[in-house]
Amino acid sequence: MPLYLSRFRYTPETWARLIANPEDRRNAARTYIESVGGTLHGFWYAFGPQDGLTLWEAPDDVSMAAVALAIGSGGAVTDLETTVLLSVEETLAALRTARGITYRPPGA
């Protein structure tokens, strides 16, 4: 199954709710991804432009998109970005396939 890295920021209101009532959000995240047949591999908070990161495994892009849409529509997070991760083997296969593609730069 494909792996996905999500980065997000909580709204100030979300942080205020978490300060008033601290909650382990890994359990919620696990429920969301498991509802589409996936797995939560990690959930971290961070300093910097993002407040948190999650590593998910989902059956396909549509399933992951559904989870991201559901989370994003809830209003608790902003700047939710999800990146599909490729294994080294998948990248090597893409490189081999790229050898057979003739690219023409714009205007050339």
Rank of each mutant, 00 (worst) to 15 (best):
L95G: 07
H41G: 03
E90D: 14
A20C: 12
A29R: 10
I71H: 07
R99M: 02
S35C: 05
Y10I: 01
A94K: 04
L80I: 02
E23G: 08
A20D: 15
T54D: 14
H41F: 05
A98N: 06
A58D: 07
G75T: 01
T102W: 05
L85H: 06
E13L: 12
F47R: 11
Y4S: 12
L18N: 08
P49N: 05
L3N: 13
R26C: 09
T83L: 06
L85I: 13
D79M: 03
V88E: 12
A76P: 02
L86M: 08
L5M: 15
R104V: 15
D79F: 00
F8M: 15
A76F: 14
T31C: 03
G100H: 06
A94G: 07
R99E: 06
L5A: 14
L69R: 14
D60T: 02
D51G: 04
Y4G: 06
M1T: 09
I19G: 11
E81R: 08
A76R: 04
A58E: 06
G107T: 14
G74Y: 03
P2D: 07
L3C: 06
I33N: 00
R7P: 02
T91C: 11
G100M: 01
D51I: 02
L40V: 09
D24T: 06
T102D: 11
S63W: 03
Q50I: 06
G72I: 00
G75V: 06
F47E: 12
G38K: 07
N21D: 14
S87Q: 09
T39D: 07
I101L: 08
E13A: 15
G100D: 01
P59E: 04
L86F: 15
T102V: 14
L86W: 15
Y10T: 02
P59K: 09
Q50P: 08
L55H: 15
L86I: 08
L86Y: 15
D79H: 10
S63A: 15
V84I: 07
S73V: 04
D51H: 10
V84D: 00
